[in-house]
Amino acid sequence: MTSWEPRILGFLCNWCAYAGADLAGVSRVQYPPNVRVIRVMCSGRVDPVLVLEAFRGGADGVAVLGCHPGDCHYLTGNYQAERKMAMASRILEEVGIEPERLLLDWVSAAEGQRFGEVITCFVGRVRALGPLSGVPGASERAAVGEGIAASDRLRWLVGKERELVEAGNAYGEVLDADAFREVLWRNISVEHFRQRVRAELGKGPMTVGTIAGALDMPPRDVLRIIVDLEDRGIVHSGGMDGDSPLYVLAGTGGECR
């Protein structure tokens, strides 16, 4: 018997899930005391960055609960939540944190009993996964994930997803949902790569070779990322190490810090 208890954050929408949680109380539905609730007006307000931040801070699980599809108080908010959480889940997988630690589900204002069931079930699931601290370097992984979730490219793509696969793109073509997800997932991997390179550079000026060695990546791929980061003004070269240029994160000032 271990004394560890999962620490879980719950983001509940004001109109359905939060009301359902209140009804669970009124109905005295008993469920495990592991969840700390943050009330948001809409499940679609839950930014993937916030989810990753919760994991970075040490949450063992995050539950995002909204209105059932079609019931959203804000018309489309829960559909937006669905896509954002799909991305958050994929990012977790990418950085090596079990995506099962993130739950997106729907609870109506009349489903007090169901709220208790959803929570009981999820607490059990997280308990089975064990503490997040069991994942080596969990906090750092989540921090990298947070960087991925904050990337403007991904945010653009996930923000546009519904429009592109349901209404159509700039050419009036409706994109295939699965194909679009592939694009999104590929971008998550690329962004992950970029974040790792950035994180590595955060330790100080480095050559492509050093980074490649540290990250166990082909130098060719690292170079491509460095060039791209240089283009965006995130990285600049700062001196040489023998024949190889040293790269520095912009804003860290290299030698001054």
Binding site: M41, C42, G44, D47, T76, Q80, G159
Partner: peptide, 22 residues
């Protein structure tokens, strides 16, 4: 209507919902 969907979507954190800021 104060749902905050824009804040969760913004690429750069430029739009914030009052009372529910990041």
């Amino acid at each position: 209507k104060g749902c905050g969907l824009c804040a969760a979507t913004c690429r750069s954190g430029a739009i914030q919902q009052k009372g529910f800021k990041d």
